[in-house]
Amino acid sequence: MNILDIVGINMRFGGLMALADISFNVVKGEILGLIGPNGAGKSTMFNCISGVLKPTSGDMLFETGNRKIRINGYKPEKMTYLGVARTFQNVRLFSALTVLDNVRIGRHCRTRSNFFGAVLRTRSQKEEEQRIVDESINWLKFVGLDKFAFLTAGGLSYGFQRKLEIARSLATDPSLLLLDEPAAGMNPKETKSLVELIHSISDLGITVILIEHDMKLVMGICKRLVVLDHGVMIAQGGPRAIRENPKVIEAYLGRGAADA
């Protein structure tokens, strides 16, 4: 059962073909690795799926509520509402706000109180606020940041900021989570706890697509990988097959490396 079908996606920036005829499926519940050298188009792919960019052509079909819908050109907030959450290659937190507020903002799309509720402090608004705090603190516990709830997000260490960003995206109740290089800049200890975190996210039934440069990490976590190079999909399959695929070796190490 696929949660996402990517069918013949093209993304063109002026004369540059950032993605050319990409097709792959994402199976519900899996952890899919999306790898490739720098400039391969991985983040562009994420931007298309999460609604930041609209692909030039092709189809993206997302399963929600037992229905497949075509999500091309949906706005990011709409995608979040449908159940696609993401993190960013360079961490994007609300740095001046507290850790708790960052996660509370993640609950935005699942709550509904408005100006009148806020000003009149209606009963339903108060209950909702309590629920938001409870759920947010649970997600902070899930990533292990609850004791920092009242600190400013910008003051956290880099590894914790990455985890906070994950907690914030989890707070949107996603069915599909896009992680853009979550281990970048982490030390080995932090990376290890990140791996555990990704596994426990997967255990919640959330499908994960992972962009990562750390090959050891990707090969360890993902049962299946998609490899992009210069906007073209050059391989997909299990870790072992990918590791031995000559095209992949060539893409990473340069022409001739596969023969050597």
């Binding site: 999460s50 930041v52 706005k75 990011p76 907030e77 979040t80 509402y81 959450a85 993401r86 960013f88 994007r92 937190l93 609300f94 740095s95 001046a96 706000l97 507020d101 509370r104 903002i105 993640g106 935005h108 799309c109 699942r110 709550t111 109180s113 408005n114 100006f115 509720g117 806020a118 000003v119 402090r121 608004q125 909702e128 606020e129 938001i132 914030r168 995206s169 949107t172």
Partner: peptide, 27 residues
């Protein structure tokens, strides 16, 4: 009351980082 509410947090999110804010579902 606006500041300490879902509305106020949405504004702050937009101020801090609008791209991240829209990824949290804020229009």
């Amino acid at each position: 009351r606006m500041e300490d509410s879902r509305l106020g947090r949405a504004w702050f999110a937009i101020r801090e980082d609008s791209i991240a804010a829209s990824s949290c579902g804020i229009n």
